[in-house]
Design a protein around this nucleic acid. Sequence first.
DNA 1: AGCCAGGACAAGT
DNA 2: ACTTGTCATGGC
Length: 276
Amino acid sequence: MHTPETSGVLLTECEDFSPALIFGCGQSFRFEQMEPGLYRGVALGRELTLAETPQGVRLHCTPQEYEAVWRAYFDMDLDYAAVRRAVAVTPFMGEAVDFGRGLRILRQDFWEAACSFLISQCNNIARIKGIVARLCERHGEAVSEKAHAFPSAGQVACLSETELRALGTGYRAPYLLAAARAVAEGRLSAAALNALPYAEAKRALMQTPGIGAKVADCILLYGLHRTDAFPVDVWMRRALAEHFPAGFDPAEFGPHAGIAQQYIFHYERHLYGKAV
DNA sequence: AGCCAGGACAAGT
DNA sequence: ACTTGTCATGGC
């Protein structure tokens, strides 16, 4: 008989695994802190609880589920200590990666990322979370007593614009409907985009109404794990103007520029009191 | 009580 | 190629 204290999968190397940072850095919107050190959410149609312990972070799942699902989801096969060293190309970047040590880029579901970041445009993170929560509660399948999966593209494609507006999506409702149909009908797919180089994949995404340069980069980075994608939003624009006044090229950060972006984004929000 | 938010888009210079 | 107005909504 497994007790809650000993069951699950214990991650002991947690220098670069902080649930607070992973779920709080603005890349995903479905995990919450239940109490200090305890996090819960739904991803890939499964509910997961994570608990911080003195020995490390414990994932409440079987070793089989960890190997089959969560190992990839949490990008466990990338050495984030090496990434931090590689992108710390200025003193400011050194501060950013020190502050963000523990952050990782999740390998999220393509449709969930596309849908979430369509909602994100001209919106704040607290509000994005609320809209996504209502979308899942009302239109996603139950995965436990109180948790719901993210609705599939097919499920969202069956909703009316009125139902989507009722979630608080505002003018983004028709964008969501068009994207859901494109994905459900196979006109937009992770497999096809994965076969394209960055610039072409981005251009293909931008054919869908509501997906501009920034949302396309978010979908590439968070939904397809293209770590060369470098989303620039209002926070990044501020940070770059302030700390790279002479201009910059994302390529300076190397092949994982998108991860550098995440450290910058989170650090900049912290400096303005918007992130812990 | 306004201000602003992980923008996109069309229309105007 | 750049600037500007518009598009809804509600957390802070």
